[in-house]
C-alpha cells in the first residue's frame, strides 16, 4: 500500500481533546499537569466482522475457534478473547468479531473453514473500539448517566472473557463490555462516534475526562 494513503479512525478529530478544553487541543492536558478521573482511548484501526451462523452446530463453533483461537461464546451477553481477537455474543446466531488480523484475510480463512448457511460481513470501516478507564466510582456514574443497562450487576470479568451487551448509549447504541482490569470497552458505530465522544466529554466533565489516540 502506498504510504501517502491517510486513514482516519472515527474519533480521529477528537484525539487529545478533553472536558477541560473541548474546542482546542491543549498540550498541558496530556503532560500530567491536569488530573483526569476518566480516560477514553480509541483502539488503532482493527478488523470487525459480523458473523451469522448456527451456534448450536458444533462444527460451526469449532471451525470459528480453529481460525481465531477463541471459543465461540454461546452464553447470552458474553465474550471470549485472546491477545489478538475477541468474539462478542450479539444474538443466538450473531457474533461480532474484533481482531488485529487483516479483515479480508480473516474473512477468507473463515469462509474456507465454514460451510452451510452462514454470513460473514466486513464492517471494519463502520466501527471503532474505545476503552473507558479510570476511577471506578466515576466510571460507574458515567455509565449510569449514559445507559439504562445495569452494568454494575455484571460479575467481574475474567482475563479472557467477560460480559457484553449491545444496548442504548445516550441516544445511540454501543456494544459495552467489561474487562478484567475494571475498565470497559465500547464498540461504536462510526456515524455516531462524534456524538458519543461529545457525550462522554460532557458526561465526564465533573470528573475530568480526556480522549487519547
Amino acid at each position: 500500500m502506498p504510504n501517502n494513503i491517510t486513514r482516519e479512525t472515527p474519533l480521529h478529530y477528537f484525539h487529545k481533546l478533553s472536558s477541560h478544553a473541548s474546542s482546542a487541543q491543549s498540550p498541558e492536558i496530556f503532560n500530567g499537569q491536569v488530573e483526569f478521573a476518566l480516560v477514553v482511548k480509541e483502539a488503532p484501526l482493527s478488523s470487525f466482522l459480523n458473523l451469522r451462523g448456527n451456534g448450536s452446530d458444533k462444527g460451526f463453533c469449532s471451525a470459528v475457534a480453529e481460525v481465531l483461537g477463541v471459543t465461540v461464546p454461546t452464553e447470552p451477553g458474553t465474550y471470549h478473547s485472546n491477545k489478538d481477537s475477541s468474539i462478542y455474543w450479539l444474538g443466538p446466531d450473531e457474533w461480532l468479531l474484533f481482531s488485529c488480523i487483516d479483515a479480508s484475510n480473516l474473512e477468507a480463512q473463515l469462509r474456507k473453514a465454514l460451510s452451510g448457511h452462514i454470513s460473514i460481513v466486513d464492517i471494519s470501516g463502520g466501527q471503532t473500539l474505545i476503552n473507558l478507564r479510570g476511577d471506578p466510582c466515576a466510571l460507574a456514574i458515567l455509565l449510569k448517566k449514559s445507559s439504562v443497562y445495569d452494568f454494575a450487576a455484571w460479575p467481574d470479568a475474567d482475563i479472557n472473557a467477560g460480559r457484553c451487551a449491545q444496548t442504548t448509549f445516550a441516544k445511540a447504541t454501543a456494544v459495552v463490555t467489561n474487562k478484567a482490569d475494571g475498565s470497559y470497552d465500547l464498540i461504536l458505530r462510526r456515524s455516531f462516534a462524534d456524538y458519543i465522544a461529545k457525550w462522554l466529554l460532557d458526561a465526564g466533565q465533573e470528573f475530568g475526562c480526556r480522549i487519547e489516540a
Binding site: 459480523n50 448457511h117 452462514i118 454470513s119 464492517i123 470501516g125 463502520g126 466501527q127 462510526r190
Partner: peptide, 13 residues
C-alpha cells in the same frame, strides 16, 4: 428462507 441481513451503512464511504 435461509438469508441473513447486516447493516453496512457505516462501513462504506
Amino acid at each position: 428462507l435461509k438469508v441473513y441481513f447486516t447493516s453496512v451503512t457505516d462501513h462504506w464511504t
